[in-house]
């Protein structure tokens, strides 16, 4: 149980970082932390007691494997995370080029 709670704490850290930090780069890091917490949770969901890695080979017998499906899901989610992070960093660099700052309190021209 405690390991699930730790996972939740990690997720909360990410969300806190997104909500509370002013620096754009720190916000991106917050997004990444929250994302990894979600991935970690999926991997935890897959775990079976004393299970072994779900790799099939010629001599292996299929016995007591952990659930392999969430691993595939996590791989997909990581790829999506890669795309999102790369895009966020690209936008952040462009913002720095235009505004000359990473501080979100000084990047607020849209209101109303």
């Amino acid at each position: 149980m405690s390991i699930y709670l730790l996972c939740l704490i990690l997720f909360s850290c990410g969300i806190y970082c997104i909500l509370r930090k002013r620096n754009i780069i720190k916000i991106i890091i917050g997004v990444i932390i929250a994302e990894y917490a979600a991935h970690l949770f999926l991997v935890l969901v897959a775990y079976r007691m004393r299970g072994r890695s779900p790799i099939f080979s010629a001599e292996a017998e299929i016995k007591n494997m952990v659930d392999p499906l969430p691993h595939a899901l996590v791989l997909t989610a990581i790829v999506i995370g890669l795309a999102t992070t790369a895009l966020l960093i690209g936008i952040a660099m462009r913002i720095y080029e235009k505004y000359g700052t990473f501080d979100i309190t000084r990047i607020r021209e849209l209101k109303g």
């Binding site: 790369a86 690209g90 660099m93 720095y96 080029e97």
Partner: peptide, 13 residues
């Protein structure tokens, strides 16, 4: 391509 784009963007800036 992503890496190269980010590097070139940095040099441009």
């Amino acid at each position: 391509a992503i890496f190269a784009a980010l590097v070139l963007l940095k040099f441009e800036t």
